[in-house]
């Protein structure tokens, strides 16, 4: 067996089998596993950023006088990184829709490209609407 596997042969009742355990570093063994872990990890900074957003909304609730936006260069850099992660998640997620969503139109399956295109279109529309609302409020 490879190193790192913890040993334990079951005793007593036959047949005895050996139950290998996942080594702690399993995710370092294959590139694909590592990329998966990186993808999962990017959720942590995004969650932090969203928590920060909640805090900002909370402060903004007590009126314009009490409000001051975070504008330090460090925070901007952090935001840009989070934006990159968010784009990565959104793009991979929406591209998957073509594989997962099964739609039929007039008895014929809708091609995956059309579905993905529609997803990105909806994404764009939603972003524009949200931006318009935010800008509208800011005025």
């Amino acid at each position: 067996m490879t190193e790192g596997d913890e040993a334990e042969a079951s005793t007593g009742a036959t047949p005895r089998v050996y139950k290998p355990e996942m080594p702690r570093g399993w995710w370092l063994r294959r590139r694909h596993y590592l990329l998966y872990m990186v993808r999962e990890f990017t959720a942590v900074p995004m969650a932090l950023w969203l928590l920060w957003l909640l805090a900002e909304i909370h402060r903004a609730a007590s009126g314009p006088k009490a409000y001051y936006p975070a504008a330090s260069p460090a925070f901007i850099v952090f935001s840009v990184i989070c934006l990159g992660f968010a784009m990565y998640h959104s793009i991979t997620f929406l591209s998957l829709a073509g594989v997962i969503i099964h739609l039929k139109f007039m008895g014929k399956p809708v091609p995956p490209r059309t579905i993905v295109g529609a997803m990105f279109g909806l994404w764009l529309v939603a972003s524009v609407v949200i931006a318009a609302v935010l800008i509208g409020f800011a005025r």
Binding site: M1, A7, A9, R16
Partner: peptide, 12 residues
């Protein structure tokens, strides 16, 4: 991998 459940504690 070799593992004889009657003799070996762990595979080798």
């Amino acid at each position: 991998t070799r593992f004889d459940p009657d003799k070996d504690k762990v595979p080798r």
